[in-house]
Design a protein around this nucleic acid. Structure first.
Lengths: 205, 205
DNA sequence: TCTCAATCGTTCTAAATTTCACGATTAAGC
DNA sequence: GCTTAATCGTGAAATTTAGAACGATTGAGA
């Protein structure tokens, strides 16, 4: 196994998503060209990515959807179910709790944390809402791997600190502010404002 | 003016966000090292990015926050207010409509579109909800530049087609499925599942 | 005034990533 | 069976991106 780059892994997740869709449609074979049409990623890039996980394609035929899916999942996900903790049960946090796609995928929301006492104790879509102070304990008990920040920017750093203390290894940060964490913790920032402005700037040229 | 890469623009948006925060705190000067500490981007990268917009820093001193902010905004945003149309007023769509940060920034949500008749005609956070069929007309009338897809994956392609027809130039796609659009239209995919799985995979090594 | 330390800005180097070119393989059709 | 066209897989070239090194500049302090 060659060393697989971060970008290849990210694209592999797109291939997996696409393959599962194709499998649901009873499609048994797919070529790199087909995948390129669907995903917008170049066929060469796709073949190169896939080949880094092994030789699973057949010239003139393409890839077997189920087999390729299994191969990719075996490498990048390894049968894991990712346990995720959510911080902030406002509008966005609630939308995340109700996000339908998590159910079928390898993701399980194990707990939500919130400051507002009126929300604590409730169950939203099967996920219990706890006070933030209980986070370290609950996160250890539920073996959460990752956390989501869906609190206002003004509180994102303190929440991030709690997440790090609790032992989370990765954070998706929806707050529109940078957070500081040890470099052993990976952060993915998703700022709606920046995403839109970036798109706008890049559509202007 | 040198040609400015997409990544530099994206980072510039982070600098702007950071600078506006510093300005609110009455901070007048900032060095590339300070910005590096806050944003996690290296100081060399920051200086290089900034220098591509002109010489605005002073050795031994750093950058004036207000001046740098103005310079960056001048290049990447040019006083524009970006008009955005939202498709899908479910949990996620509603959260986006209520997203507080849009108010102060250069983004204006001009219309929302939804299939479910019970939601049509309502106003959420000042934004009117229209039936999807009216999209081309409303989008032209409101001069929307960009669109957000917050509908289920099963309907994302048909919504994308309407958006393209309506003349939108960029799309943020929250549906967990790839969409096909002409290459003149820029798409930014944000799939919560993939973001989490990517983080998990990359925290495993 | 002179030295020093901090910081910017730029050029060169290195690494990562994508694209290109092309050989290898395979099944279909004549 | 032979040819052909489609497709995979891969090594090399090209491009993009980040990083390192370093000179240039500036204000502070002796």
């Amino acid at each position: 196994m060659k060393n697989i780059s971060r970008r290849t892994v990210d694209r592999a997740l797109i291939y997996i998503r696409t393959l599962e869709h194709l499998i649901k449609e009873k499609r048994y074979l797919v070529s790199s060209k087909d995948l390129a049409l669907i995903t917008g990623i170049s066929d060469v890039q796709i073949r190169k990515d896939i080949s880094s996980f092994g030789k699973v394609g057949r010239p003139r035929i393409g890839y077997k959807t189920a087999e390729l899916n299994k191969t990719l999942k075996g490498f990048v996900l390894q049968e894991n179910v990712v346990h995720v903790a959510l911080f902030g049960v406002g509008h966005l946090g609630t939308a995340i709790l109700r996000y339908p796609a998590f159910n079928e995928d390898n993701i399980k929301l194990v707990a939500a944390f919130e400051k507002d006492k009126s929300k604590i104790g409730k169950k939203i879509n099967g996920v219990r809402v706890y006070p933030v102070e209980m986070a370290p304990k609950i996160i250890k008990r539920t073996h959460a791997d990752l956390g989501i920040i869906a609190v206002p920017a003004s509180h994102s750093q303190e929440v991030a600190d709690i997440m790090v203390l609790s032992g989370l290894r990765g954070i998706v940060n929806f707050a529109p502010a940078s957070i500081s964490v040890p470099k052993s913790v990976i952060v993915k920032d998703i700022d709606f404002t920046i995403e839109l402005l970036s798109l706008f700037c890049n559509s202007q040229r």
